[in-house]
């Protein structure tokens, strides 16, 4: 397993950081933002102001480290649903994400200049789409790369196999970023696959596969940059398996106390990806309590503003049920719409 920082935040012998300190600081800011959103969104869900929410908690280094390897002006992001910071880094406004979670049918639309697909709750279904986009970019002579996310549970789906297989054949410029957080709701990693390493599966598709410490921001970023560069150079797809741990529930409906050994969670907390980056930056004189307070203050204000903006969005109108079905409604749909609106 590739690692640059040990859990105490020290560079491993001879390791060279792939990011300069300002960039690491930027990464840390996204990680802290992600964790603060997890807390706020969970609270809002408990108050009934937000729908089901899936926290990123524990996986911040994997998501942020990989997304930092992308160029949002030409690369595509194809998420599953546990990659919020990557979506924000790609240019998707937080208040729009909150509006989606509130079930707003209009305001959550991805802006036209953000190269990203909507979150995908059908596991692994987004992987064929990612391959298609990447293949299409290549056929059109564009130099964009697609980064797509999924978990170790989704890697058991047929769509994972079919997508990797096609990507290998057409040498699609796509990076399959597998977040192995050990849990598919309550099903542990060892019940998903008999393979010792999920990254090893890459060989079966004619692409490189690498296992990386998913709680190590620097290591994740380095392997992600390599995979993106490879794709951009026309050398085809890569598979990255980031070993991380879901330190919270699957989503707000879940109750991990029914299946999770508390000792395992404790061990995971000792590998907290945020603490590791903080220790690293501290050692380089870039992080102290004062800075932490400044960051936290700014993040809190950013979330306040997004929540306020989301709450001010126009209330959905029932006629919007019929928006964006087709470019033009069929006569049947049009009649049903009139009936709904009492015009029929």
């Amino acid at each position: 397993m590739f690692q640059l920082l040990d859990p105490a935040g020290r560079l491993r012998n001879g390791a060279k950081p792939p990011l300069d300190d300002e960039f690491v600081l930027e990464g840390l800011r996204w990680m802290l933002l992600s964790r603060a959103i997890d807390a706020r969104a969970t609270a809002l869900q408990r108050q009934g102001r937000l729908g089901v929410f899936s926290p990123v908690l524990g996986q911040e280094a994997a998501v942020v480290g990989s997304a930092l390897a992308l160029d949002p002006s030409r690369d595509w992001l194809v998420p599953q649903y546990r990659e919020l910071p990557a979506m924000l880094m790609h240019g998707y406004p937080l208040h729009k994400h909150l509006l989606n979670l509130m079930g707003n049918p209009v305001e959550g639309r991805i802006p036209d200049d953000v190269l990203m697909l909507p979150t995908q709750v059908a596991l692994a279904a987004q992987l064929p789409h990612a391959v298609g986009i990447a293949w299409g970019l290549k056929l059109q002579g564009k130099d964009g790369v697609v980064m797509t996310y999924f978990g170790e549970g989704a890697s058991s789906e047929g769509d994972f196999h079919e997508a990797c297989n096609l990507a290998g054949v057409v040498k699609a410029p796509v990076v399959f970023f597998l977040q192995n957080n050990n849990w598919a709701i309550s099903t542990p990693r060892q019940l998903q696959s008999g393979a010792a390493s999920l990254a090893d599966r890459a060989a079966g598709y004619g692409m490189p596969g690498v296992q990386v410490d998913g709680n190590d921001l620097l290591a994740v970023n380095q392997v992600s940059r390599e995979a993106v560069a490879r794709a951009r150079a026309g050398e085809g797809p890569s598979l990255i398996e980031a070993i991380t741990y879901r330190m919270s529930f699957h989503n707000t409906t879940d109750n991990p106390s029914k299946y999770q050994d508390p000792a395992e969670l404790e061990a995971a907390r000792a590998r907290d990806p945020i603490a590791r980056v903080q220790a690293y930056l501290k050692g380089r004189g870039m992080w102290d309590e004062k800075r932490e307070q400044e960051f936290e203050q700014a993040i809190s204000e950013e979330i306040d503003a997004a929540v306020a903006k989301a709450q001010k969005a126009p209330v959905p109108n029932r006629s919007q049920i019929f928006d964006n079905v087709f470019a033009e409604l069929t006569p049947r749909q049009a009649a049903q719409r009139r009936e709904l609106l009492g015009e029929g």
Partner: peptide, 25 residues
Amino acid sequence: DRVVDTPLAEAVIIGSAIGLAISGM
């Protein structure tokens, strides 16, 4: 490049067509 023999996998024929369309084809 415009008439493509794909692997024998129906889901990714349709799924990649979705992505191809998103990319502008």
